[in-house]
Design a protein around this nucleic acid. Structure first.
Lengths: 104, 104
DNA sequence: TCAGTACATCAACCGTTCTTGATGGGAGAG
DNA sequence: CTCTCCCATCAAGAACGGTTGATGTACTGA
């Protein structure tokens, strides 16, 4: 049974929220070219370090990116499956939407 | 020329923001079954009228729904194209993302 | 051990968003 | 015209989100 419950609605809302910021969308765009360390993102986005760290945390907690330490650097990379899931949510058939909407 | 500019990033962010709320996702789910008047949405969602009106305005300004008056009732219906556009954004090839991300 | 680099986290501030209750305006019935 | 129903909008307050500067932590190299 595909658990399309209210919990899923909240989960989907959180994921869409993670995409509701231009800076975060730019980060995702950069990570589309492969993993990057924070310093590279900082340089290209011209963003303060704490600001970038904040947005990376949002993306990480929403499941869009993962972090990997290598020596002193921490490399972020995209998690493609979650985007596919989101697309699946958007293209969900009417029945599923109605179930999700009705469920409290 | 597909104008994938920073403006588009902001536009995409605004659209994702419109989807970043469980109540609005439920509304979209209900409208997936066809157009509804506000009173029907109120009854099913058990939401205050002003609250619902607020969320409908957000969805309307983001382009997800349209309103139509019939007698004393105002019927809202889904605008499917914008969802398709959003899916296209999510499944955009890397080049486009990088262009959008780089552009300031 | 000490200094330097890379990144996370914290606290504070401010603008935005969401909710609630009240007001207003359009449409139909009497 | 008046009353009622349906809905939008407004005002006020609470909650949330994003930015900044400072502090903390992990790792490296001297």
């Amino acid at each position: 049974m595909p658990a399309t419950t209210a919990t899923d609605l909240h989960l989907a809302a959180e994921r869409f929220h993670a995409l509701s910021d231009p800076t975060r969308l730019r980060i995702i765009g950069m990570l589309g070219g492969g993993e990057r360390c924070v310093c590279e993102l900082m340089a290209e986005l011209d963003a303060a370090q704490s600001r970038l760290s904040f947005h990376l945390r949002v993306l990480r907690e929403a499941g869009f990116v993962t972090a990997r330490r290598d020596e002193q650097w921490i490399y972020y990379s995209l998690q493609p499956e979650i985007i596919a899931e989101l697309v699946a949510t958007l293209t969900m058939p009417r029945q599923e939407w109605k179930r999700a909407a009705r469920c409290c």
